[in-house]
């Protein structure tokens, strides 16, 4: 059982990060406003969690201009997707073995 707990990824412990990664797993590109409305948290909060995930190489950030407005969009990297899949598998195994 200890092995399973070790496979849980510390990077996804917070609920916000879990939420961000879930959204990015099923959407190719997601912009800041959509993340904010889905997660219903403050700008600063999202930004800090995103930059945490970015530093780990799990999320890539694209900044561009849509017309005259700056638009930041996020995507999960391949490494991010792999790590998150492993995290979900570990969670499922933990629940199953305890039953």
């Amino acid at each position: 059982m200890k092995n399973f707990i070790d496979t849980l990824n510390k990077a996804f412990e917070s609920r916000i990060r879990l939420g961000i990664m879930s959204i990015l797993m099923v959407n190719d590109q997601v912009d800041f406003t959509m993340l904010k409305e889905l997660l219903q948290i403050t700008d600063g909060n999202i930004a800090s969690h995103i930059s945490g995930l970015e530093k780990l190489g799990y999320v890539s950030v694209t900044k561009q201009f849509v017309g005259k407005k700056p638009n930041t969009s996020y995507a999960a990297t391949i490494a991010g997707k792999e790590a998150f899949t492993k995290h979900i598998q570990a969670l499922e195994q933990l629940i199953q073995t305890k039953k």
Partner: peptide, 21 residues
């Protein structure tokens, strides 16, 4: 802890659905 894990799985599912459907 078990409840926490279960909750995490459910959170993931709702977020995936809400962001695509």
């Amino acid at each position: 802890q078990e409840k926490e894990h279960l909750q995490a799985i459910q959170d993931i599912k709702t977020m995936m659905e809400r962001s695509t459907k």
